[in-house]
């Protein structure tokens, strides 16, 4: 059995002005081949004009078990949203 070829995450920017978006992953031995394979695999139909590749192993992800403590405390901070505040209609859009 051969050694495993590392996994890479691929991000594509569809066009200037938009952010790079995760589109999938692939295997490559190094970053140069990862970039070329990303081009060959994920941009065959004009999907973008810029590619990022990141070793999957380099991604640190939040723990799903901590989802509640991470993301729920924000739910009641409604004063962070503009609709929390009353402004008179006469002053127009603010």
């Amino acid at each position: 059995m051969t050694a495993t070829t590392p996994l890479w995450e691929v991000f594509i920017r569809p066009r200037n002005g938009l952010a790079h978006k995760h589109v999938g992953s692939l295997h490559a031995a190094d970053e140069v081949m990862a970039l070329q394979s990303a081009r060959d695999v994920y941009t065959r139909r004009g999907e973008g004009n810029s590619i990022w590749v990141v070793p999957s192993a380099a991604i640190t992800a939040s723990d799903p078990d901590q989802t509640a403590e991470n993301f729920e405390p924000t739910a009641d901070k409604i004063y962070r949203h503009p609709t929390f505040y009353d402004t008179p209609e006469d002053v127009g859009h603010m």
Binding site: T5, L26, H27, M33, Q36, S37, D40, V41
Partner: peptide, 8 residues
């Protein structure tokens, strides 16, 4: 030799 080359 690898799937990536099957596309390249």
């Amino acid at each position: 030799p690898m799937l990536e080359e099957d596309l390249a």
